[in-house]
């Protein structure tokens, strides 16, 4: 059985159909990429899965139970965590605190025993700190040691992205939704994050659903690729199949007019050796 099953969900904002009858399933241990032009509904899909929006029709099942209509924090409790496209870190808190906040929902002590620092609470606090450092270690030594205690606002954009991924991992989720994990990173950092995402699956045991625009990253790590356009799923399959699909090429580059030469964009793309 698939870990995440999105069944025929639709969502409209007024007259705009942001999501129209989309079905996606993600199996345990898979890395699935969602691609599509800007405005295709990728982030809306993430918002629907994580409970920010409620789908108008259809159902979302995580490990067999329906999560549609649940609150975002309840969905995190079940084991789905996300990162944001335009970074939503707790800017005035340190890296360590950021990664600790996301473990708060697992805390068993109530507020009074936390306030009185009971031994049970202190043990959990210690475990939380160790877990936080363990998750930050996925990104190498750059978020360790002195960086742990730096407020997020002094970090570089790439380090902020990494912190946000570590924060999502620390929720204890089984499924991670990464919204453009490599946005704002240079080619070298993108290659590195590609490796890290794969290691998150192989060593961390996370199942990953990601939205990405950088095709080399998508091609490198995806087990499956889902293509959205205007809120509809237009293709699904392996990376090679999907990028050679005429509907996908049309969605990205437009239709070739009847009897006309290839467009400039398509020519340029071919010359570059890119598939799209």
């Amino acid at each position: 059985m698939a870990m995440l099953e999105v069944k025929n969900i639709s969502k409209s904002f007024g007259g705009l159909k942001a999501m129209n009858d989309v079905s996606i399933s993600v199996g345990q241990g898979e890395i699935v990429s969602v691609i599509g032009p800007n405005g295709a509904g990728k982030t809306t899909l993430f918002n629907l899965i994580t409970g920010v929006y409620t789908p108008d029709t259809g159902d979302i099942k995580f490990e067999g139970s329906s999560i549609a209509g649940k609150k975002p924090n309840q969905i995190v409790d079940l084991g789905v965590a996300r990162t944001f496209q335009n970074l939503r870190l707790f800017m005035n808190m340190t890296i360590l605190e950021n990664v600790l906040v996301s473990q708060h929902h697992k805390l068993k002590s109530n507020w009074l025993s936390a306030l009185l620092r009971t031994p049970g609470y202190l043990a959990q606090e210690k475990a939380m700190r160790e877990y936080a450092v363990e998750k930050l270690a996925f990104f190498g030594p750059r978020l360790q040691s002195f960086r742990l205690h730096q407020p997020v606002f002094v970090l570089s954009y790439a380090n902020r992205r990494r912190t946000e991924m570590a924060r999502a991992m620390a929720t204890g989720a089984k499924l991670l939704l990464l919204d453009e994990p490599s946005a704002g990173m240079n080619p070298k950092e993108t290659r590195e994050i590609t490796q890290i995402i794969r290691r998150m699956r192989d060593q961390g045991g996370y199942t990953i659903l990601l939205v990405e625009h950088k095709m080399n990253l998508v091609g490198e790590i995806s087990d499956r690729v889902v293509v959205l356009d205007y809120g509809q799923k237009i293709a699904e399959g392996s990376y090679q199949d999907v990028v050679n699909d005429p509907t996908v090429i049309e969605a990205y580059l437009g239709k070739k007019a009847e009897g006309k030469e290839e467009t400039e964009v398509q020519k340029a793309a071919k010359m570059d050796g890119r598939t799209i």
Partner: peptide, 27 residues
Amino acid sequence: KLKYSSYGRAMESIREDEIASEAMGIN
């Protein structure tokens, strides 16, 4: 004591970003 406990951190995260806070499991 409350401010420097996990509950205090959760409250500060609400101050910093309510949406992210909820998305990280804070009630």
